[in-house]
C-alpha cells in the first residue's frame, strides 16, 4: 500500500467509532481506589475516608478523577490484547510497517467525581489522523482519539482526548566501543549509519553476500531511495558475482586513521554487473595494485558481527 492510500484509508475512520464501547467489568470500588492511591502516593482523604469526603462536600468517598480511564481498561491476558480490543485504524498502520506506538498527549475533562457503584462505559471516536511527520522516534502519523465516558444512566461523566504516534521505528544502529588490548586503546572501525534505504546492503554483507539495488534491470550503488532514471522508489535486490576489475585506486599513507593498516590501498572496483564499489585490498603489496587488474570480492569481519567487503587480486 502506498503512503497516500494508507492515509486515505486511515482518514475514512475520522468521525467514526474506533471500536465497540467498553463497559467496565467492575463498578467504581474502594479496593481499586486504595491500590491506585498507594501506587501514586496520593494521601488526600476524600478518596478513602467517608467523613473527610463529606466534609469536603462530596456525598461520600470519591474516586480520583485521574482514574477515569482506569475503569474501562482491557483485562490482562497472556499474549496481549484480543483482536476486538485493538483498533482497526491503528492496525492499518501496523500492517504498513508503522509498528511503533507511543502515547504523546492526553487531555481529560471531568463532569463529576465518580463514586463507588458507578459503572462506566467508554466510547472512542477517531478524531484526527495527521500527515506524515518526521520525529525523533522515526517517521509516523499522529492519531487522535476522542473518548466519551458515561455512567449507567448514560449521563456523561468525563471526556478524554488521547493522541498516539504510530511510527516506523528507526533501525538499530551498530555500536562501536573502544576496547583495551594489551594496555593500549584499540580504536573501533568507523561504522555505517543503517537506514531504511541501505539496510538490505548491510544485511547482505552480514551473510557474506554483495547485494545491489536494481530497478528495471538498472543496477545502482551506493544504496539510495530512488531510481535516477524512472524516479521509482521500488527496487529489487540482486547478488553480485563479486568479480570485477580495478577502475581506479589510491594508496593512503597519511593521515593514519585508527583502525586501518598503512600503506593502505583503496580501490574503486568495477564489477561485472557494471556497478562500482570502493573497498580495501587484502593481502596485496601496494605495488601490485594497478588499474585494469582482475579482482574478486571477499568478506572481512573487521570486528565481531561487523563485515565489510574487500577485494583480492585474482
Amino acid at each position: 500500500m502506498t503512503d497516500d492510500s494508507l492515509l486515505a484509508q486511515a482518514r475514512e475512520w475520522v468521525g467514526r467509532a474506533a471500536n465497540q464501547p467498553a463497559t467496565a467489568r467492575d463498578p467504581v470500588n474502594v479496593p481499586m481506589i486504595r491500590r491506585w492511591c498507594e501506587a501514586m502516593g496520593e494521601t488526600n482523604a476524600i478518596y478513602f475516608d467517608e467523613s473527610a469526603a463529606q466534609a469536603a462536600g462530596h456525598p461520600g468517598i470519591v474516586a480520583p478523577p485521574a482514574m477515569l480511564e482506569v475503569w474501562t481498561m482491557a483485562p490482562y491476558r497472556p499474549g496481549g490484547r484480543t483482536a476486538e480490543e485493538g483498533m482497526a485504524v491503528l492496525n492499518l498502520f501496523d500492517e504498513a510497517g508503522y509498528t511503533g506506538v507511543v502515547a504523546t498527549n492526553t487531555r481529560q475533562e471531568y463532569d463529576r467525581y465518580l463514586v463507588p457503584g458507578d459503572v462506566i462505559t467508554s466510547t472512542p471516536i477517531v478524531d484526527d489522523v495527521s500527515d506524515e511527520k518526521r520525529t525523533a522516534l522515526g517517521i509516523g502519523h499522529f492519531v487522535t482519539l476522542r473518548y466519551e465516558f458515561t455512567d449507567a444512566s448514560d449521563e456523561r461523566v468525563g471526556r478524554m482526548t488521547f493522541r498516539v504516534l504510530k511510527f516506523k521505528p528507526n533501525l538499530a544502529q551498530p555500536k562501536a566501543e573502544a576496547t583495551e588490548e594489551g594496555g593500549e586503546n584499540k580504536f573501533p572501525h568507523p561504522r555505517p549509519a543503517i537506514t531504511h534505504d541501505n539496510a538490505f546492503y548491510w544485511e547482505g554483507l552480514s551473510n557474506r553476500k554483495l547485494l545491489f539495488q536494481s530497478t528495471d534491470g538498472r543496477l545502482r550503488h551506493p544504496p539510495g531511495p530512488m531510481d535516477p532514471v524512472s524516479g521509482s522508489l521500488e527496487f529489487d535486490v540482486v547478488e553480485s558475482s563479486g568479480r570485477g576489475t580495478i577502475h581506479s585506486f589510491v594508496v593512503m599513507h597519511q593521515p593514519r586513521l585508527p583502525g586501518f593498516e598503512y600503506p593502505l590501498p583503496v580501490v574503486l572496483v568495477e564489477l561485472e554487473e557494471g556497478v562500482r564499489l570502493v573497498a580495501n585490498v587484502l593481502d596485496a603489496d601496494p605495488k601490485e595494485v594497478e588499474i585494469g587488474r582482475k579482482v574478486e570480492v571477499d568478506f572481512v569481519e573487521v570486528e565481531p558481527g561487523y563485515i565489510l567487503p574487500a577485494f583480492r587480486l585474482s
Binding site: 466534609a55 478523577p65 498527549n105 492526553t106 487531555r107 475533562e109 471531568y110
Partner: peptide
C-alpha cells in the same frame, strides 16, 4: 480537598 479537579492536559 479544597479544590475540585476540572481537567488535566498532558
Amino acid at each position: 480537598a479544597a479544590a475540585r479537579i476540572d481537567s488535566v492536559d498532558i
